[in-house]
Computed example of a mutant assay.
Amino acid sequence: MAVTGAVLVLFLITHMIGNLKIFFGAESFNDYAHWLRTLGEPAVPYRTVLTLLEAGLVVAIVLHMWSAVSLARRASAARPVKYQAKKKSHAQGYAARTMRYGGVIIAFYVVWHLLDLTFFVVNPLGGDATPYQRMIADFDPSRWYITVWYVVAVLLVGAHLHHGIWSACQTLGLRTPRTERLLRGLSGTIAAVVTLGFVAVPVSITFGWVS
């Protein structure tokens, strides 16, 4: 779970950086989208590398969810009788409580996101528009509810990241009394930067700062 989580964190960071190119204008954003689809040309056909990366990402997501279910079942089997006294801990904090349900909501969001900007099924302009035009149309002020839905999903991703990165550091044996404060700060910083980076784009479009 920690390893697949690390793969997903790296994907989110690179995806966020790509999204931020929208602030450099339509040409920069469209060039980036075109570059993604032509990676490896002419050695390999159009979109081959991107398709392989997407397939690997799907595998990582499926393995991550499978690991979560397996660990939950193992924990339940290891302790079939509940504790008589409940003790609050970091693992029972807000982020931990949202991991399970937030993960389900994030999964639904990923499906919608793919239908919107990869397969163009739910995008207002469809597949004939440029990537920049589709993004602008998606978060048009008249579609404010899409922006709200996006922001809520990203906030859940942030909570998921904060708790997940910290847990992964413990799982991988990186936590020590000396590194604990650093790792807590690192997990919070990464979660905050990724959240702000993803939220900045739809909010800027909805408020007319990018058009």
Rank of each mutant, 00 (worst) to 15 (best):
V210W: 06
I105L: 15
V7P: 00
F119G: 01
A191G: 06
T189K: 10
Q92W: 11
T195R: 08
A43P: 11
V148T: 10
A137Y: 07
F119K: 01
L186A: 13
L117D: 13
Y94V: 15
H15N: 09
G93R: 08
G40R: 02
Y83M: 10
A192F: 13
R100C: 07
Y109L: 10
G5C: 04
K88N: 10
M135D: 06
P141C: 07
G93C: 05
I165G: 08
Y150E: 08
V152D: 04
A2K: 08
A26L: 09
G127V: 04
Y145W: 14
R184D: 13
A85I: 14
V81S: 09
G158K: 12
V199G: 10
V199H: 08
A107P: 01
Y83C: 11
A72W: 05
R97G: 13
A200R: 05
R143Y: 13
L174K: 15
I146S: 09
W144H: 05
F119V: 10
P45Y: 00
A96Y: 09
L20I: 05
S67T: 02
F120W: 08
T130W: 04
E41D: 05
A96L: 05
W149F: 15
T14A: 14
M65F: 00
T48N: 07
H160E: 09
C169G: 05
V110N: 02
L52Y: 01
V111W: 05
A33M: 13
Y46D: 10
V203C: 11
Q133W: 02
P177A: 02
I105W: 09
V111S: 07
A96C: 03
Q170R: 10
Y132S: 12
T38Y: 07
V121M: 07
I165K: 06
G40C: 06
P80A: 04
Q92N: 12
V154H: 15
S76Y: 05
W149Y: 15
V111F: 11
W166S: 12
A26Q: 14
A77T: 03
R37W: 01
H34T: 15
V110S: 03
L183W: 10
V49Y: 00
S187K: 06
W144K: 06
